[in-house]
Design a protein around this nucleic acid. Structure first.
Lengths: 132, 132
DNA sequence: GGCACTGTCCTATCGTGCTGGTACGGGGGT
DNA sequence: ACCCCCGTACCAGCACGATAGGACAGTGCC
């Protein structure tokens, strides 16, 4: 499981980390019981401060997505997957909705919009293949 | 032309304002030569600080989208529309792409994604009718 | 027991974006 | 000429997220 931060995103690094874990759990790429990278390890990998990772993990624990076992590691919570499903669905719907609103406000027609979405889907699934 | 700020958006008020003007110009809702709301007026309407609006206008002027005539007002620049077309197209593509990536990462299938987009389009065009 | 690794906590500091307030100079209608 | 509204500029201050560094306690392995 790789995590990475897009510095050009308007979302803060901590939020991006949180989102990525949530989505990975919701999609089943991270199963309940799986061990997440260590705070320090993930910080080094994602080039952020360990404190930022720790805060993200703490938020996730508060949301019931993960469980942290001090001295051992952070694990996906037992029912974290179902908890994430609703959560990530809501997030995704909200953000996709916003992006579509923007696109229409910018004068794009439905056809062009459809084409952009298709293209993004194809690009994204191609990347998924490569990483498989 | 109404502008409003969504405080729940991850984007800063200034950026939201900037985007909205850009999209309005790109879509032809604001034509070259049209007068934009005054710094103070828009600030009062959108519940932000006049300084924030002034900065957004300055950025837009730097991008060649608007022209400011001190003592008079801020106007859409002569070739602002064409300048915006490319700009907003790029922005929209980027953000829609990100949202689609997220949705797929969250485990949504293409069919569900399609359904969400359709729903957002319909909701959005319904709002457009109401405001027409 | 000792060691390496884990998560946790705390404080100080920086950068950035927004706020609040004030002041200046120009345009345009009266 | 006057006054009102306009954009512009500048400043101090605040909030927030991220950074940096250090210290602590628990777990697991040897």
């Amino acid at each position: 499981m790789r995590f990475e931060i897009d510095p050009r995103s308007p979302r803060s690094p901590g939020e991006q980390l949180q989102d990525q874990v949530t989505f990975a759990v919701a999609s089943g790429r991270l199963l309940p019981g799986a061990k997440l990278p260590s705070v320090r390890g993930l910080a080094a990998q994602a080039l952020v401060n360990p404190n930022t990772v720790a805060r993200a993990y703490r938020e996730l624990e508060h949301a019931g997505v993960v469980e942290s076992r001090p001295g051992d590691g952070v694990y996906v919570a037992a029912r974290g997957d179902s908890r994430c499903a609703a959560l990530s669905g809501k997030l995704v719907r909200e953000r996709l909705g916003r992006a579509v609103d923007e696109a229409l406000a910018a004068g794009l027609g439905e056809a062009e919009l459809q084409e952009i979405v298709d293209r993004a889907v194809r690009r994204s699934s191609k990347e998924r293949e490569v990483n498989a």
